[in-house]
Design a protein around this nucleic acid. Structure first.
Lengths: 133, 133
DNA sequence: TGCTTATATAAGTCAATGCTAATACACTTG
DNA sequence: CAAGTGTATTAGCATTGACTTATATAAGCA
């Protein structure tokens, strides 16, 4: 399931917002979501599963509870896709600092990658939108 | 349809990528998409409709053609939602410049809002994705 | 005017998704 | 161990959404 599909659901977006403020137990998330959206515990649990499997969260068992936290990787991917369009709302004055920022992001990205990454390629030729070749 | 739902489809994401390089006719988009995804012209046309109605594109008729172009507003909205999480991948050093950028964005946003362009997004059970503060 | 091209819409099908109710699993505690 | 929480899974149903074929609208041109 592509990142954007995962984010397509309002409940899942809301859950991520909640987790952005810090680790929460499944039950705590449930409480808020059930209150706000009026859905059942299994429904929330299923959403948590989608987030988990999509890599949007990490889980840490603590006793009988499961503590969920944001894993930002996929969100960064989404952010990266938006790079295609940022110039539409980024005035020329901001271009430099944005580029610098992007550069640093890239550096760190590479640095972090012990796993072999595509060498000097400009990033995301077009792809990763998930189409069949 | 929420911005993220619109972006949930790979064909639509690809169309936006194409339009990012500049205005294109429906037919030109069709050609590429049909080639890449193997779907029919009506299918592409329907995706264009979703993008149009979601505010992601503008259309300009020229003779018998319809020229589509990106309208970045909804994408900015998505970008704005990501602000909730940017600190996860934005090192402290970048915090200031990011904040400055955000500030300028806000200023412009307000400035631009001379026009009462406020579609308050009434759907979504509770707080949309923006919760009742 | 009628033919052709460019694009959009309509109707119907099929698969995917989100929900509920019921149930299973896993820790904790009496 | 038994009972009680906290959480996940299953099965079934209803809805949504992307697709196809067929057709409509509209502009350009003989």
């Amino acid at each position: 399931m592509h990142a954007f599909d995962v984010l397509g659901d309002p409940v899942r977006r809301r859950i991520l917002e909640l987790l952005a403020d810090g680790e929460m137990s499944s039950g705590a998330v449930c409480a808020v979501i059930q209150e706000e959206f009026g859905i059942t515990q299994p429904a929330v649990s299923q959403h948590l599963k989608v987030l988990r499997e999509g890599g949007f969260t990490t889980v840490r068992p603590e006793g009988t509870r499961r503590l969920y936290a944001v894993n930002a990787e996929p969100l960064r991917e989404v952010d990266g896709w938006l790079d295609h369009f940022r110039r539409f709302w980024t005035p020329p004055l901001m271009a430099l600092e944005t580029e610098l920022a992007r550069g640093r992001r890239e550096q760190r990205r590479r640095a972090r990658s012990a796993e072999p990454q595509e060498p000097p390629e400009s990033h995301e030729p077009h792809g990763e939108t998930g189409r069949p070749s």
